[in-house]
Amino acid sequence: MSRLDSTGCALALLIVGATFLGWELGVQFFQAPVYILPAPSRILATLSANASVYALATLITLGEAVVGLLLGILGGVILVSLISLWPGLEQGVMIVAILVKSTPLVAIAPLLTIWLGFGVLPKVVLVAVLTFFPVLVNMLSGIQATEPALLEVFRSWHASQRELFRHVRVPYALPYVFAALKVSGPLALVGAVVAEWTGASGGLGRLMWLAYTNLNLPQLFAAVFILALAGISLYALMVYTERRIVFWQHR
């Protein structure tokens, strides 16, 4: 297993390395102007020259993304709990959830600032709005897909809805929740960046926006690199947590 992982890792590094090398050589060969496509070496130079600026921005954006994601998960879990205890609520909740979900981010981002001010709160809320939906939908399908044999055992015990929820439905839905989190984790970063893009005093989104309006592409790509890395890290964190928590799925 670990051996397989290390070959996979080496291969992944090789592919990434080759991509970067090709990119670098392509830029050199075609003499692409930096405002059209900067070379990776140039991007990394920008990154290291402004390391502390990027570190602070990353911290802000990651903070917003993580807090927002936690809020989104909490929201999704609460809604699913309500639905599974009072199934009559399902349609109403889903309609409202889809309504919230289908509102374009760029439309609500400025509104959130108007309602919640200039600080990090509107960003966190935007991330939560963006991430709760996958959690809601996946966890709900998990709950509804619970193995009938397990349900029968609990019914034969005349267990209460609460006992059923706690000991069977929720644990059964956990793998589904993690499937959602693998989507929502990287999505949370996108949400935070979009929220910052529409006006913020800090964070990677703001750096990207400034870079874009100055057409400073190395600076823009440096932020993209960090985001990619952060996205991969969040995903890996989800996979790791999943293996720890949903251990029975990986027998």
Partner: peptide
Amino acid sequence: VTVEHSSGRGEHMQLLTAGK
């Protein structure tokens, strides 16, 4: 004075009329 910046999509006028 607290200094804020708009992204230039017109939200500064919205925020002004909202009293922010």
